[in-house]
Structure formats: structure tokens, C-alpha cells
Design a binder for these strands. Structure first.
Length: 319
DNA sequence: AAATCGTGGCA
DNA sequence: TTGCCAAGATT
């Protein structure tokens, strides 16, 4: 158990006030920040933004909320429609979980997003970050929001480090909890403003320290911008030839097809047949893909579609 | 608890 | 050009 770092309360208070003022002056007009936002809209925006840049999320979110304004409306959508609307946001399992989440909200909470962090956490696809974010941004309630932006801002301003560790540590969580304001309003504003700073100014690659409202308070700057201590320990995401790329290729083809796609077509898109087969199986297992029979009618007598070894394998987005 | 899961923009 | 990284969750 490591000793908690000591940060002067006056410094923290000045950080909070300066960033809060800065946020209220300069916050980006993201659509889910509009005054007529709903808790469900906020939740949707948070799930879409998990590991996806908000600039890419915004247009999808607008179309999404117009089409499915409430949990009940979204709960009734077909999986294929959901996955096509999700488009190229990435990690399509999030779209599936979001629909499970909507159905859980309908069943457990009468169609209303609960104003309770533990109940939010219990929803599919909602983890510690998203539950805290919904509490703060949808309800204006106190929570400890720790995303990649907040982690970086705290690591620099308070820790004097270039970047946080690859994975969230207990010490970081403790620090974040310690600096979160007590009142609902102040905590919600702190969450929004510390995230915004990390997203817009205190960025990972080339931070804009010249235009940073709290550069005069920043420990990393005061220390002369020491380089990342654990540089090189960050594993780079492999991509080419991976299952992820194969799965993405399949999903892209099925989204574009608006109908069943034969295995032979997919074989043309991916050179390794064995890998493709494994990925198709995993996609079916995940509920992202459905295997159907080449003869969609199932025959004039309504008999069950055949799926014997010799039949052509055909895939589509789940109905 | 380390691995897995998409996609695209940018330096 | 290519590695880095983006409002994480799940198992």
C-alpha cells in the first residue's frame, strides 16, 4: 500500500476554480451537452465514446437519438438496424450491449435511466467510468470521473508525470477521489472541465501548454517536462492480419450488404480461410452475425432451412 | 489480471 | 509512412 501523495488543498481548489471558469467559457458545444439533453442521450453518448473520438461520435449520435429517442424505442429496434446505424464507430459489441442496456432500463427501471451509480453500474456495457459520467453529466450529481483525459491531467498537474501508467492504478483512483469536490455541482463541473482540458488542451501527443489555463499550476511543467518514465512499456496494438481486422472486414461487408452474404464472398475479402472461419464463429458467438441458409424462403412448404455439410454457408446481421 | 475487442486521424 | 491513441468494458 503506497502512501497517498500530498497535494496542497489550496492548489486543488485553484485548479478546480480555474478549470471550471475556463470550461464555462470555452466548452465545445457537443450535441449531448445541449440544455434539452436527456439522461438516456447522455448514456448513449458515453457508450459511443468508449475508445472512440467524440468527433466521430457526434453525427452518429444525432441520427441515433432522432431515430430512437428513448430506451423503450431503442429496445424494440432490430439488431441489424442497430449495427448498421452504429456504422464505423468500432467495437460493435458496444452496440449490442447498449441495446441490452436499454432493455434492462425498460425492465428494471420502468424505462428511466436510474439516478443511482450502483444501478447504473449494473447495466450492460456500463463500467466505472460510464456510471460516474452519467451521474455527473446527466444528473449533475457528484461522482469521481476517471477517464483517459482525467488520468493524464492529474498525472501532469499533480503528479508531475508526462503520462499515467498504461493501466489505471489504485493510487490514481485514490488521487482522483481525493481531489473531487464535495458538492454535486462542483464535482460535476470538475468532472466536465478536467475531462475537457485533457481532450482539448492537455492532449497526449502535443499538449497546448501555451494556451493552458492551469499551466502555472502544473507540476509537470514546473519540473521541466520530464519524459515519460515507462515509455516503451506500452504495447502497440497489432492490427494487420489479426482477428480484429478479419472481424472488422466481415462486419463491414455485412453492414454494406443489406442482405445475406455467401461465405465465398467473404473468402474473397480475407485470404486465410481458417482464420476467417474462426472469426465467423466468434462473431456468431458474440451475437454480431447470424448464419442462415442460402435458401432464405426455407422452401414453399415452409420446411426448416437445410444446413447440411454440402450447403453453402451464408451470413447476415442478426434480425 | 492480462488480453481482447474496430476504426480512423494525425504527427 | 507508420506508430500512437481515442469519454473503456468484459472476461
Amino acid at each position: 500500500m503506497t502512501a497517498p501523495d500530498s497535494v496542497a488543498p489550496a492548489l486543488v481548489a485553484e485548479l478546480q476554480e480555474t478549470l471550471g471558469d475556463w470550461f464555462e467559457r470555452t466548452a465545445r458545444p457537443l450535441p449531448w451537452r445541449s440544455p434539452d439533453r436527456t439522461p438516456w442521450g447522455v448514456l448513449v453518448s458515453e457508450v459511443m465514446s468508449q475508445q472512440t473520438p467524440v468527433a466521430r461520435v457526434a453525427p452518429v449520435w444525432l441520427e441515433w437519438m432522432e431515430r430512437w429517442p428513448t430506451p423503450a424505442a431503442f429496445a424494440a429496434a432490430s439488431t441489424a438496424d442497430v449495427l448498421r446505424a452504429w456504422g464505423r464507430l468500432g467495437y460493435p459489441r458496444r452496440a449490442l450491449r447498449l441495446q441490452e442496456c436499454a432493455r434492462a432500463v425498460v425492465e428494471r427501471h420502468d424505462g428511466e435511466v436510474p439516478e443511482d451509480e450502483a444501478l447504473l453500474l449494473a447495466l450492460p456495457g456500463v463500467g466505472a467510468y460510464t456510471a460516474a459520467a452519467v451521474m455527473a453529466f446527466a444528473f449533475g450529481r457528484r461522482s469521481v470521473v476517471v477517464d483517459t483525459n482525467v488520468r493524464r491531467v492529474l498525472a501532469r498537474t499533480l503528479g508531475g508525470d508526462a503520462l499515467p501508467m498504461p493501466a489505471l492504478t489504485a493510487a490514481e483512483s485514490a488521487r482522483a477521489a481525493r481531489v473531487a469536490p464535495v458538492s454535486d455541482d462542483d464535482a460535476a463541473l470538475w468532472a466536465a472541465s478536467s475531462m475537457e482540458l485533457g481532450a482539448v488542451v492537455c492532449t497526449a501527443r502535443t499538449p497546448s501548454c501555451d494556451s493552458c489555463p492551469v499551466s502555472h499550476l502544473c507540476a509537470w511543467r514546473a519540473a521541466g517536462y520530464p519524459p515519460d518514465e515507462h515509455a516503451g512499456r506500452r504495447r502497440t496494438q497489432a492490427w494487420k492480419g489479426t482477428d480484429r481486422q478479419a472481424r472488422g472486414t466481415v462486419m463491414g461487408a455485412l453492414r454494406a450488404a443489406h442482405g445475406p452474404v455467401a461465405r465465398a464472398v467473404l473468402d474473397d475479402l480475407w485470404p486465410d480461410a481458417a482464420q476467417l472461419g474462426r472469426c465467423l464463429a466468434s462473431l456468431v458467438e458474440d451475437g454480431l452475425v447470424e448464419q442462415c441458409d442460402a435458401d432464405l424462403s426455407g422452401g414453399p412448404d415452409g420446411r426448416a432451412p437445410r444446413r447440411d455439410a454440402g450447403a453453402a454457408q451464408v451470413y447476415r446481421l442478426p434480425a
